[in-house]
Design a protein around this nucleic acid. Sequence first.
DNA 1: ATAATCGTAGACAAATCGAATCTACAATTA
DNA 2: TAATTGTAGATTCGATTTGTCTACGATTAT
Lengths: 146, 146
Amino acid sequence: MKFSKATNYALHTMLYLVAAPAGKSIGVRPLAEFQNVSPTYLSKILTQLVKAGLIASTPGVHGGYRLAKSKDAISFLDIIQAVEGTASLFECGPGHDAGFHEGCLIRSVMARAEDRMERYLQEQKLIDLVDRVDGHMLEFIRREAQ
Amino acid sequence: MKFSKATNYALHTMLYLVAAPAGKSIGVRPLAEFQNVSPTYLSKILTQLVKAGLIASTPGVHGGYRLAKSKDAISFLDIIQAVEGTASLFECGPGHDAGFHEGCLIRSVMARAEDRMERYLQEQKLIDLVDRVDGHMLEFIRREAQ
DNA sequence: ATAATCGTAGACAAATCGAATCTACAATTA
DNA sequence: TAATTGTAGATTCGATTTGTCTACGATTAT
Ligand code: SF4
Ligand code: SF4
């Protein structure tokens, strides 16, 4: 039970895009180098974010990725679910016969626990990052992004 | 990012033990049959619960497993962590150079999100199950346990 | 004691999933 | 037209999860 590395890459990429000059497209190469990951693999992950409507991509010479919505409209939960999917964390498969699951408390407790985490992640927006982030990190990213 | 099946088995076993007559040891066979899982595999999972001090085991003819603590002293979190471990859900491995991680907000957001879920799971005790559980389920278990 | 019962441990095998690579392709711009 | 850049799919690699099998140790009934 761990968040995948893909989620890690997605979050770091979004942080990078948040810190980059608004409207500027960033190629996958600097994004990948920044995280020591292969560009093609990162591209595959970012395509999921594109399909989720969080970022936009443009091909061509000065193409790349940029945010598709305002920084206060993109939550951590959006990013994570775009990569990990929205399925329930607790799979209560058909272990025994039906009629048994009525009012089951295991399931409701697990669902609520997951909901607690998701609600918090939904409250945390990208704008919170750029507001409170340590200057050191932003400088680094901006230098890389020119 | 899903809870393992082992966690599922552990939770259902604990529910069974909660519903069983107090003090009575339940063999691994009925517990395994109840969930359609192999007895030896389930035993391996339950051994983790034993080592965590949540249940106790006794060999011999009338042996089996029973709760090792009172029902209000065992939380969902105890059970889950005994099986899944206590490592952080978000692994922010060494992606880039040091000095970068100071005051990182990705990490703190993810840690807090996890904490939200864990705190809720810690509040939910086994006693809450037996208090509010649907009678249908308890009857089934009690019938099986004689 | 002895034998039956039951949990424990470890080696091992199978299946699943995550991570990553490679290659060919499509879209855009200079 | 050529260079650049993202996209898509097949495929490989490795780790983890899940499960089996077998031998062992502890307890109890006879
Ligand atoms: S008893 Fe509850 S947790 Fe178990 S399978 Fe049924 S609904 Fe799911
Ligand atoms: S920047 Fe933050 S999330 Fe990324 S590796 Fe450093 S501490 Fe972890």
